[in-house]
């Protein structure tokens, strides 16, 4: 439903927003709490990314479907209830799929509810766009979040344990970098990736576009 005179993104562009141009981890630096906490291994990181994508997709779809019926005074309350519902559902699902994974992720599954990517997408995008467009954008954001988490989790698992997806890469004599599986390691690796990303973008030409997000969450 393109408004007259307003340029509209194609669905592909809408999808790529979250993957690259507005990547939630590398560009918007949103949702840092789960990013830093669960990215100690590639499996945990991907599971967290997929769980967040599921919540993102479900909640944006529902919010978008209801966007005309929800009075603006109670919209945040509505969004939070919807998001919390999907988080609860994904919490049960993960426990049903793998108890081991469920215990590794711990409280961070429930904490998806306060991940600002999700409320941010509901408020800034889904409440203003039709379901298909909202879902496309949410999928892109989710994929971007998965990529970001995986980038962190892979580096931390390789250096911190010498493994990737639990498979030993360097043999039994590997010296684990203990710091990488501790919280500071998360900050170091995130900083390294941000440096690389910003440097690449600058080299690609054009100054950095100011991101819409802020560091929090």
């Amino acid at each position: 439903m393109a408004l007259p005179g307003q340029q509209e993104l194609t669905h592909l562009e809408e999808f790529m927003e979250g993957v690259w141009k507005q990547n939630p981890v590398f560009v918007m630096v949103l949702g840092m709490c789960p990013t830093l906490a669960v990215s100690v291994s590639a499996v945990n990181a991907l599971a967290m990314g997929l769980a967040t994508t599921f919540v993102l997709l479900g909640s944006t779809l529902l919010v978008s479907l209801m966007r005309k019926a929800v009075p603006k005074e109670v919209r945040i309350a509505t969004y939070i209830v919807i998001i919390a519902t999907f988080v609860t559902v994904v919490d049960y699902l993960i426990a049903a799929i793998s108890l081991e994974l469920y215990e590794a992720l711990g409280a961070f599954i429930q904490l998806i509810v306060v991940n600002c990517i999700i409320l941010g997408r509901a408020e800034a995008h889904a409440s203003k766009n039709p379901p298909l467009r909202a879902a496309t954008n949410a999928l892109g954001m989710g994929l971007g979040f998965c990529i970001g988490l995986f980038a962190l989790g892979a580096v931390r698992e390789i250096l911190g344990a010498g493994k990737l997806f639990g498979v030993a890469l360097f043999g039994p004599d590997f010296q684990p970098w203990v710091v990488m599986v501790l919280p500071p390691g998360g900050f170091f690796v995130l900083g390294g990736w941000l440096l690389l990303f910003n440097w690449l973008r600058r080299r690609q030409g054009g100054a950095l576009k100011p991101a819409e997000g802020h560091v929090h969450g």
Binding site: M66, V70, V74, A77, T78, V81
Partner: peptide, 10 residues
């Protein structure tokens, strides 16, 4: 009404 419907669905 809105919150009621949302809560029920959820």
């Amino acid at each position: 009404r809105t919150l009621g419907v949302v809560a029920t669905v959820c």
